[in-house]
Amino acid sequence: MKIDLSGKTAIVTGSTSGIGLAIAKGLAGTGATVVVNGRSEAGVGAAIVSIPKGVPFAKVSGVAADVSAASDRANLVEAVPSADILINNPTIFEPNDFFDTSDEDWSRFFDTNVMSAARLSRAYLKGMLERNWGRIVFVSSEADLNIPTEMIQYAASKTAQLAMSRGLAELTKGTAVTVDSMSPGPTLPEGIETFVKELAKQNGRLEEEAAALLVKRHRSTQLIQRFPLV
């Protein structure tokens, strides 16, 4: 099926690597004008350079902004005041013992994983409804329902994303605007790759063995039982 999004503007937050970058490349391939976002100028610049290598006709720009901070979010909206497609993707994750997870850690997770999406959806959804066309996608996680005990704060933030996406979808009834959530399993971006390398080193295993053991122990419901690459 050929998807043609020519003339549409798509913002993909947290898109300098991993799932976000893969989504940005995919949208560029449909003809959409893609706005890459990440915290650093260097990361955004690298993504802007990399996308046209796989999609020669790509129309891509970028805005460096930490969307977990309200002020930076405002800078993004000022730079791109209107969007037809919004991919809410920025995510932080880390294993934490529940009893050692501070209030500050909980706030940090919700600011990045939840409030960034709430603020940007609030900024762009109204315009989509007025134009009667738009797409908002939340990149949640299988952890939104399959709660890992070593990352309860992360899972709680992802479950909140699921609730938000459902609530916003209810607001779009009878329109050509849709709001959805996707719940991918673990992938192997730079952060996880570093974690696996350290785990392998600590346990005297090959990296492939450490990765397989990690999935088996902590993501036993995953069907493919490995980290897919993005």
Results as ranks from 00 to 15, higher is better:
I3V: 05
D4F: 05
S6N: 14
S6T: 06
K8E: 03
A10I: 02
V12E: 01
S15W: 00
T16S: 15
I19E: 00
I19M: 11
A24Y: 01
K25A: 03
G26T: 00
L27Y: 05
A28T: 00
T30Q: 09
T30S: 07
A32T: 02
N37F: 11
G38D: 10
G38N: 13
G38T: 01
E41S: 04
G43Y: 02
G45I: 09
A47H: 09
V49A: 14
V49C: 15
S50C: 12
S50D: 13
I51G: 08
P52V: 01
P52K: 08
V55W: 08
P56V: 06
P56R: 08
F57A: 12
K59I: 09
V60Q: 03
V63P: 14
S71K: 13
D72I: 11
R73D: 08
L76Q: 08
P81G: 07
P81S: 09
S82D: 06
A83M: 06
D84W: 07
L86M: 04
I87F: 00
N89D: 08
N89M: 02
N89W: 04
E94N: 14
E94G: 13
N96E: 03
D97A: 06
T101R: 10
D103M: 02
E104K: 05
D105C: 13
W106A: 02
W106V: 01
F110T: 03
N113Q: 08
V114L: 11
M115R: 05
A117F: 01
R119S: 00
R122A: 07
A123R: 08
L125G: 10
K126W: 14
G127M: 07
M128E: 01
L129Y: 15
E130F: 03
R131A: 13
N132S: 09
N132A: 01
F138H: 12
S141M: 05
L145Y: 15
L145R: 15
N146F: 06
M151S: 04
M151R: 08
I152K: 14
I152M: 04
Q153M: 09
Y154L: 01
A155R: 11
K158H: 13
A160V: 06
Q161S: 03
A163P: 12
S165D: 00
R166D: 02
G167H: 07
G167N: 11
G167P: 12
A169R: 04
A169V: 01
A169H: 09
E170P: 13
L171H: 15
T172K: 09
T172P: 09
K173C: 14
K173S: 13
K173F: 08
G174I: 02
M182W: 10
P184K: 06
T187A: 01
P189V: 00
T194I: 00
K197P: 02
K201M: 10
K201I: 11
Q202R: 15
Q202G: 11
N203Q: 13
N203D: 14
E208L: 07
E209W: 10
A210R: 13
A211K: 12
A212N: 15
L213V: 14
L214C: 13
H218T: 12
H218W: 12
S220I: 08
T221C: 14
T221K: 15
I224N: 03
L229E: 03
